[in-house]
Computed example of a mutant assay.
Amino acid sequence: MTDARIDAAMMEQLKELLGERFTELVDRFIQDGERRLGLLREALKTQDFVAIHAEAHGLKGSSRNIGANILGGLCSDLEQMGKENKAEGLQTVFAALEQEFAAVCAELRTW
């Protein structure tokens, strides 16, 4: 598989390493990501920058662990905005993050 959203070589390595548990990894990533997006959505409403930073940081790590580097980069941007208490542009970055997460999940489901 060649798709720019996910590092295919990393996914193949994970699949080989985890065997039957690979599907569990994918399911957990999706469930955790959906939970974190919900928490981020609420944090954006109240401009809870501590929560924005923390949730974006957590999603960044799990995204990079599966080779979803574009998603990880968007999370990094949001994480930094939370760290800097920067409200300007938060909604735009979050909207891009949501779209990328949906695309990554769709790609993951093909694995």
Rank of each mutant, 00 (worst) to 15 (best):
A54E: 08
A51V: 14
A96W: 01
A54F: 03
R28A: 11
L37E: 01
L39V: 07
R64I: 04
E84R: 15
H57A: 02
G82I: 01
A87D: 09
A43W: 06
F49G: 04
G19I: 06
A4V: 13
D48T: 12
K86N: 08
A103S: 12
M11Q: 14
A95F: 00
E107P: 03
A9T: 13
A4P: 10
A9C: 08
E12H: 15
R41T: 11
F101W: 07
L44F: 06
G72F: 00
Q47I: 10
E24N: 12
I6K: 06
D7S: 10
L40P: 00
T46H: 10
A87V: 10
N85L: 06
V26D: 02
A9G: 05
A54M: 10
S62V: 12
G73C: 02
E79L: 03
K86P: 01
R109D: 00
Q47W: 08
G33S: 05
V104I: 09
L74E: 00
A95C: 08
H57M: 02
Q91Y: 08
A68G: 06
K60Q: 03
G61D: 11
K83L: 11
G58P: 03
E88H: 13
L71P: 04
A9K: 15
A68C: 07
S76K: 09
E100G: 04
T46S: 15
D48C: 06
E107S: 12
E55P: 00
E84F: 03
E98A: 11
E100I: 00
D7L: 07
T23C: 04
I52M: 02
D7A: 12
N69D: 15
W111K: 08
E84M: 12
L37Q: 09
E100P: 03
A43R: 05
D32E: 14
R109M: 05
L14M: 11
L71D: 01
A54Y: 03
A96V: 04
S62N: 06
M10F: 14
K15Y: 08
E16S: 15
Q91W: 09
M10Y: 02
G73A: 03
G73N: 13
E107Y: 13
R64P: 02
E34N: 14
D48H: 04
E79N: 06
Q47A: 10
A103R: 11
R28N: 14
K83Y: 08
G82S: 05
R5P: 01
I52L: 07
E79R: 02
E12T: 15
K15G: 04
E79Y: 03
M11G: 00
G73E: 12
Q91A: 15
E34P: 09
W111M: 13
A96C: 05
C75N: 04
L14Y: 11
T2K: 15
V26P: 00
L14S: 10
C75T: 02
K15C: 09
R109L: 09
